[in-house]
Each structure stands twice: as C-alpha cells, then as structure tokens.
Design a protein around this nucleic acid. Structure first.
Lengths: 147, 147
DNA sequence: TCAATCCTGACAACATAAGTAGGGTTTGCC
DNA sequence: GGCAAACCCTACTTATGTTGTCAGGATTGA
C-alpha cells in the first residue's frame, strides 16, 4: 500500500509555505531546490493545489505561491485528497462490485481502514508541522547576528 | 491511496477457507465461483499465501486449500502483508531519500499513517470475519430440513 | 523592456496491476 | 491403470498509473 510521490512532495511544499506564512510568496524554484523535487513536476502539483483552493498563485516576477488560508486550518488530509483524489483503500470500499453489498464480511475491514486513514491524516495541521520544521531548520542553520 | 485487488481477493478467499475450517479443503475453482474472482488469478494469490505459510495446499483430485492455522490467529494484516509486501504509505516512510532523516517534519505523518493502518488491519481476525460471513450466508440460504 | 514567474497541454519512459495462457505434477477414484 | 481433478510454475499481455520532461504562452515587478 502506498501513497504516491505527489502526496509526499505536496506535503513538503506546503510545509515550506506554512513556514513562510505572513511573509511573501515562495516560488516553485525555491521549494524545489530546498526539497530536492523536480521543478516542473512540482509546478504541476502546485497548480492542482491552487485549483483545489489550498494555495494562491502570485504571477509575475517575485511571484510564487502562498497558502490560501491559515495553516491551522489545512490538514495533511486536505493535501493528500487534493492530490490523489478520494481516499479509498480498495475498489470495493468505493463501490460494491461483487454484488454482496451489506452481506460481505470484508466490507467493514476496508471501511475501518479508510476511516482510520482519514482520521490520522486529519490530525496533522500545517501550523504544527511548520513549527516543527522551523525548529529543525533553526538547529541546522548557523545564526548570522551581523545581518 | 489504495490497496490492490490482491488484498481484496485474498481476504475474501481466506474468509471462505475460515468458514470451511474443520471441513475438507476448498478448491480455487469453488472460491472463484463463489466470489466471482478470475480463477487463474486467484490460483496465483493462493500460491503466494501458501509460500507465506498462511494456507496449506492439498494436491490431486478432491484437493484444494486449507488454512495453515487456527482462524483466530490469522489477521487481515497477515493477508495483506503477505500479498502486497511491507506496508509503507510512501517512499519516504520506507527510506529517507531527501537526506533529511530525523529533520523532516513530514516524517511522523507517514509513520503514524503506517502504524495506524497496521493497527486497524491487525484487529480483524479470520475467525470473527468468518462468523459474520456465516451469518450473512445463512440469512440468504433457504434451510433444507429434509436433508 | 526584460527577466522571473506561473499556466497549460502534450508527450514519453517506466513500473505496476490484473489477468491470460499453457504446460507440468500430483493424487483420489473407478 | 487410466483419467480427471486439482495444484504448480513461468512467461506473456494488456491496460493503467506514475513520474516526470518539454515547449510555448501569459502575467507582472523592476
């Protein structure tokens, strides 16, 4: 079982945007460099996230992307669902194909997997992830007091 | 996010074997018919499950498959892992590729997703699933007291 | 004006999923 | 002994999804 690289890249990118929250827009190029993501691919992902209403694009020179709303109100689930579509662990969890809807003992298994997955992803919000990331970044950045 | 048809078919097949626990072996053909699974494909899955030690094959006429141990001791997690390999939601959950191991805020997200998934799947055992399935089956089978 | 930046659609290489095909081997039963 | 039922094994196929790349267009700050 796996989520695709889209989710992984998308979450990283939006953590970076959350870190820069209240600052100016961040360009795909900067994020791609920072996170080692193929730039053109990341651009596509951010375009999707814009269409899904999670980020706002600022075009032109010195442009980039900004979170569309407060980082507290964006969860990992929002990002994953925006990039991967609805989260169903199996075909059968989405639609009964065996003609046994309601009479198949396997049904609750997939239902509970799906619910638990959504639940866990929903618990992570960008604000806390960004906070944690900022701590990590600070620990590995030499302070430059002369600036 | 999704598990593949293998998990879905495999779980259904092993529920059928659990229902027939203490009876004789059940053939792939019977299971395939009962669950509407392509027979040749199911055969491959059962061969995998045999190699993984979950079922025992009985060759020759009147042969088939039997659970290798008590249905109480086989979980949905056992089946899914046997058929799909180790359960990692993203590439990064399996191996850090960005060179930020321990300093990436996204890491705990995938870790918790993985843990929760394993946890939920581990909660379902074949004995209870078979019990439930037997109830469903009984409800849709006309009793034949004259036999 | 120019360069930085996002926007869009097409395309390609590769991997995986889902099944098919065809033979080989074992074994219960008449 | 013969035969059919069943598992065993490997290879092949077809379709789809993933992970990008590429080329050009539109927008805008300096």
């Amino acid at each position: 079982m796996r989520l695709t690289a889209k989710s992984e890249y998308g979450l990283l990118a939006l953590i970076d945007l959350a870190v820069a929250w209240n600052g100016g827009p961040v360009s795909t190029r900067d994020i791609a460099r920072n996170r080692d993501i193929p730039p053109a691919f990341l651009e596509q992902l951010l375009a999707t996230l814009r269409r899904e209403g999670l980020v706002i694009a600022v075009r032109g020179a010195r442009g980039g992307f900004v979170l569309a709303r407060d980082p507290h109100s964006i969860s990992a689930l929002d990002i994953v669902e925006a990039l991967e579509g609805p989260l169903a662990p199996t075909v059968c969890a989405a639609q009964a194909i065996c003609g046994r809807e309601g009479t198949c003992a396997a049904e609750p298994v997939w239902a509970r997997v799906s619910a638990s997955l959504r639940n866990v992803l929903g618990e992570f919000d960008l604000a806390s992830l960004a906070e944690r990331q900022a701590l990590f970044d600070a620990a590995f950045t030499v302070p430059t007091p002369e600036e």
